[in-house]
């Protein structure tokens, strides 16, 4: 294929990346210019604009875990020769989950500082996200401890992902329900509670963050593949030399 048509095909396949960029730009603009300040919040509701970034991050940090777990299950139970590709996808999802977890904690803490007067309140959802952070961190730690064999690393970290699902799902479903929370649980799930300007920004924001997540995942998997190839090539070069 000539180089020109190849790059044209690449550009055609990238349409959704442009969409992601445009959507994200719209969300950033909309968060400050379209949505009105929320009623009943401190500082005339200016701080509440953080939800356009905070809530998608929170959702993604748990969705990423489930994505990582699905790929872990796929890796372990693929009947024929196990493919390290599934492990890369699983690891990439978990790394991104860690990233969005941090972003969610930071944005939440900024809002809490302005709205509730303290950056940290031991609200159950705050506790949950911190423990979620710890779970992600220990997953990544386990992977660094298993750097010798890629197959073993893939197998054991997949097992850890599945076992840690038990505390993760308790965190997401059970803990916020058994402890009293300051989080507005119904504000976002009940459509009557948000104004039309909020919806105009919040719903595109979910789409923008989801596309961003998929894009980042693709990039990370590609870089993990390159790292693995480079390691293999280095090994081969050594065995040729000596």
């Amino acid at each position: 294929m000539p180089a020109q048509t190849k790059s044209a095909a690449k550009l055609q396949g990238a349409w959704w990346k442009y969409t992601a960029g445009l959507l994200m730009a719209y969300v950033i603009y909309g968060a400050f210019a379209i949505a009105h300040g929320a009623i009943g919040f401190a500082e005339k509701g200016v701080a509440a604009r953080v939800i356009f970034f905070h809530v998608p991050c929170a959702v993604l940090s748990s969705v990423a875990y489930f994505a990582g777990m699905c790929y872990a299950v796929r890796y372990l139970y693929s009947s024929h020769r196990k493919s390290l590709k599934d492990d890369w996808y699983s690891a990439a999802a978990m790394e991104l989950g860690f990233l969005f977890c941090i972003l969610c904690t930071l944005t939440g803490s900024i809002f809490a500082g302005i709205q509730w007067g303290s950056f940290w309140n031991w609200d159950p959802r705050e506790t949950s996200i911190v423990i979620m952070l710890l779970l992600y961190a220990s997953y990544l730690l386990l992977r660094t401890g298993l750097s010798r064999s890629p197959e073993k690393k893939a197998r054991l970290s997949a097992v850890y992902t599945i076992v840690a699902l038990v505390p993760a799902q308790f965190l997401i479903w059970v803990v916020p329900r058994i402890l009293a929370t300051m989080h507005p649980t119904t504000t976002l799930t009940d459509p009557r509670m948000t104004s039309i300007t909020y919806k105009m920004v919040l719903y595109p924001s979910f789409a923008a963050f989801t596309l961003l997540f998929i894009w980042l995942m693709q990039l990370r998997v590609r870089s993990l593949r390159i790292l693995a190839l480079r390691k293999e090539r280095a090994l081969r070069r050594i065995s040729e030399k000596y």
């Binding site: 506790t127 423990i131 710890l134 779970l135 961190a137 220990s138 997953y139 730690l141 386990l142 401890g145 850890y160 076992v163 840690a164 038990v166 505390p167 308790f170 965190l171 803990v175 402890l179």
Partner: peptide, 15 residues
Amino acid sequence: LFGAIGLPILVVFLI
């Protein structure tokens, strides 16, 4: 590694 990967799971259990 044992404590580092085990205790985060146990935090939830302790709650």
